[in-house]
């Protein structure tokens, strides 16, 4: 009843865990039955190992949290050698989240992932583009289109592009990514925010800005998922502040085929499991036989 076909891949339920909030899955296996999840999305991977940012990396705010981890990850080769096998043992689809700071890095990363048996690539276009003078790939749709086009040409894996809510025009961004060859769209990544330490009289984060996630962003994320679902003809994976099954059902009614749980994993490590159970109970109560009946109904 909860099963979803997405880019030709069978997901037993629509609940995935968002990149960066669930490591490589193993971190949570002592606490929850990871094999019950709809799918796993890796920590953001880059071609080469990254140490991530210095200084404070997370900061709690009302209704959410700011993070500035800086894509700390072991690099794609080490991921393939050390973590991929372990992730596969859960028997759920594996989506590799690919980040980068140049088109060449994205392409090389996608080429390496293409040779593995991951199920899908989620392309993170929200990282700083050094060559474009520090501008994000995820802000201007013309820039994003170039990245997606290049990555598209370098892999046969299903390609899902993860949009930043900081895009100049989220609908245009989605449309351009689909034109460039995206098989699916996921949205939204974190919102650009900041916090100030009033005693030190300086920003909390070394990079000044950080990404806001959590329940505070949900209504905006939901609106964006709704708008994008209406505008593109590829499936959409929705995320942004989902903390319970009601939020999840809202995203599905707004048009999402799959959803991702992020910050809620920190609020309650059982959140994703409870959301799967909650959606199931909701469907039974409402006499819904398949998610097709409610997807995009609004």
């Amino acid at each position: 009843m909860l099963d979803v076909k997405f880019c030709g891949i069978d997901f037993k339920n629509p609940v995935l865990v968002a990149s960066g909030t669930f490591g490589f899955g193993m971190e949570y296996e002592k606490i929850i039955d990871v094999s019950r999840l709809g799918g796993l999305i890796t920590k953001g991977l880059t071609l080469n190992k990254k140490e991530g940012n210095e200084g404070i990396r997370i900061h709690e705010v009302r209704g959410g949290m700011l993070n500035s981890i800086g894509l700390q990850n072991p690099g794609i080769d080490e991921f393939i050698e050390k973590y991929l096998e372990g992730m596969k043992k859960y028997g759920v689809p594996i989506i590799a989240n690919l980040g980068g700071s140049s088109i060449e890095d994205y392409v090389k990363g996608a080429e390496r992932l293409d040779k593995t048996d991951i199920d899908m690539i989620e392309l993170n276009i929200s990282c700083p583009n050094v060559k474009e003078g520090g501008m994000n790939f995820g802000i201007k749709s013309s820039v994003a289109k170039e990245v997606v086009k290049s990555v598209r040409a370098s892999t046969k894996k299903p390609l899902m592009v993860k949009l930043s809510p900081n895009a100049e025009d989220i609908v245009d961004m989605a449309v351009k990514c689909v034109e460039a060859g995206a098989d699916a769209i996921s949205l939204v990544n974190t919102f650009k925010g900041m916090a100030i330490d009033i005693y030190k009289r300086r920003p909390v984060f070394n990079n000044t800005f950080a990404g806001l996630s959590g329940p505070a962003i949900k209504p905006i994320a939901l609106r964006m998922v709704y708008e994008v679902s209406k505008a593109v003809d590829v499936p959409v994976c929705g995320l942004g502040g989902i903390i319970d099954y009601k939020d999840a059902v809202e995203f599905i009614m707004a048009g999402a085929h799959l959803i991702q749980i992020g910050t809620a994993n920190f609020m309650n490590p059982r959140a994703s499991i409870e959301i799967i159970e909650g959606i199931e109970r909701f469907m039974e109560r409402e006499n819904i036989k398949s998610l097709d009946e409610i997807r995009g109904i609004v």
Binding site: G20, G23, E27, I58, N67, P269
Partner: peptide, 25 residues
Amino acid sequence: KMACGVGACLGCACNTKEGKKRVCV
């Protein structure tokens, strides 16, 4: 500061001679 407590979020990184380590795990 920590978010997950299981070694997943990398929020609690600490600099060591062997690179970044997670304070939690």
